[in-house]
Design a protein around this nucleic acid. Structure first.
Ligand code: SF4
Ligand code: SF4
Lengths: 149, 149
DNA sequence: GGAAATAGGATAAAAGAGGTCTTAAATACT
DNA sequence: AGTATTTAAGACCTCTTTTATCCTATTTCC
């Protein structure tokens, strides 16, 4: 089934949250979980793994929490998804050269290649800097609307 | 995880097989399963559901089997996948207008919309007539190569 | 009636989603 | 220095859904 897992969805929300904070800000799980509407126990686990993968820095104890290590401009949506779900491939024949023995004569293979490329292009070319910027714009628009009403 | 299910993969192989047969030909599951390398009991069930969805006609008893009802030119890959897996949507917020309450201010929503569109475009614009034609070409090329060697 | 096919139900294994509880580290307050 | 508090790390658990498959019943023709 072609669906983003909750784990990756939450990871994106979490990193987006951090991207929208002032640089170097330390946030803790409970705060982020509440703001982004993510179960905190789950988010904690996700952040653990994002820390291991080098996206975040964690500090324990009072005043501790998580900080973004990489600049948002250098994190793509694609990277975060792959960190959570492993490599993305839409069909077996795209995982490696000879994963499917039918590939030599199967006309569907090319279709998947094309579909995968056009899908990946979109998420590879989207950084969290862009998302954060778009997020601020969208929020302002949203607030001015409810303010006017 | 963004992966095509085996069910849909096998359905595509099955319909492709029928698309490459002379029109109106009745094929039975065992034959197709062998040719397309699909477990026959599984394929049988898949064909059942494709029959219910109106892609195939089935006849039971001796001399029975399955026939394509729709002309290959009018079947898209997308349709077959949706018949097997239900509607395709990459993320919750794409299933319906207000599936995700965060949509009003979430900047990621637009990204998914874009990704989904460019992915779907590819599979919507691919009919089994094209695939069958490409399959014939590919097979000939393949045979001439092994013949020359 | 018997062989050839499909119809449909049952099932086993894997992935996904989330929770709990204990341990470790850092700070803050005596 | 010592203790309490705050926060993450890590290990373990459970429940549900999806995926992939098999097995038996039923229909139809000869
Ligand atoms: S699309 Fe063709 S090559 Fe790809 S996995 Fe399916 S059969 Fe193999
Ligand atoms: S991407 Fe944004 S709108 Fe879509 S499901 Fe996630 S939070 Fe909701």
């Amino acid at each position: 089934m072609f669906r983003l897992s909750k784990g990756a969805e939450y990871a994106i929300r979490g990193i987006l949250h951090l991207s929208m904070q002032p640089e170097g800000k330390v946030s803790f799980v409970e705060e982020i979980g509440e703001a982004q509407d993510v179960p905190k126990a789950y988010l904690a686990k996700i952040f653990q793994s994002l820390t291991k993968k080098g996206f975040l820095k964690s500090t324990r104890g009072q005043g501790g929490g998580f900080t973004l290590i990489k600049p948002p401009a250098e994190i793509t949506v694609n990277e975060v998804i792959e960190a959570m779900e492993g490599p993305i491939y839409l069909n077996d024949c795209l995982v490696s050269k000879d994963a499917c023995e039918r590939e030599t004569f199967c006309p569907v293979h090319e279709l998947w290649q094309k579909a995968q490329t056009s899908f990946m292009d979109v998420i590879i070319n989207c950084t969290f800097e862009e998302l954060a910027k778009a997020g601020k714009v969208k929020r302002e628009k949203c607030e001015s609307k409810s303010g006017a009403a």
